[in-house]
């Protein structure tokens, strides 16, 4: 009585769970890195926009 079906199911659940978690983690890491890049770009652009009128006002 080896119950190979249960053995296979146990290993399958274990590895599927681990791989699913790793794939999700990789996708999440990529997503937050992209978010940080976009926010940094927007912040830099916003700082440029606020600096430009001040410089113009200083010249006039």
């Amino acid at each position: 009585m080896d119950y190979l079906g249960y053995l296979f199911a146990g290993f399958a659940v274990f590895w599927a769970g681990l791989f699913a978690y790793l794939l999700w983690l990789q996708a999440r890491l990529r997503q937050v890195k992209r978010q940080v890049e976009l926010l940094e770009e927007r912040l830099a652009a916003s700082e440029d926009n606020t600096a430009a009128p001040r410089a113009t006002a200083g010249r006039s």
């Binding site: 999440r28 890491l29 937050v32 890195k33 978010q35 940080v36 912040l43 916003s46 606020t50």
Partner: peptide, 22 residues
């Protein structure tokens, strides 16, 4: 890996708050 994801996520939240203020 998960902690790094959390750390970068927290940085995104902080940046979003700075951007909102700016």
């Amino acid at each position: 890996l998960r902690s790094e994801t959390e750390r970068i996520g927290a940085r995104a939240t902080a940046l979003r708050a700075t951007l909102d203020r700016a």
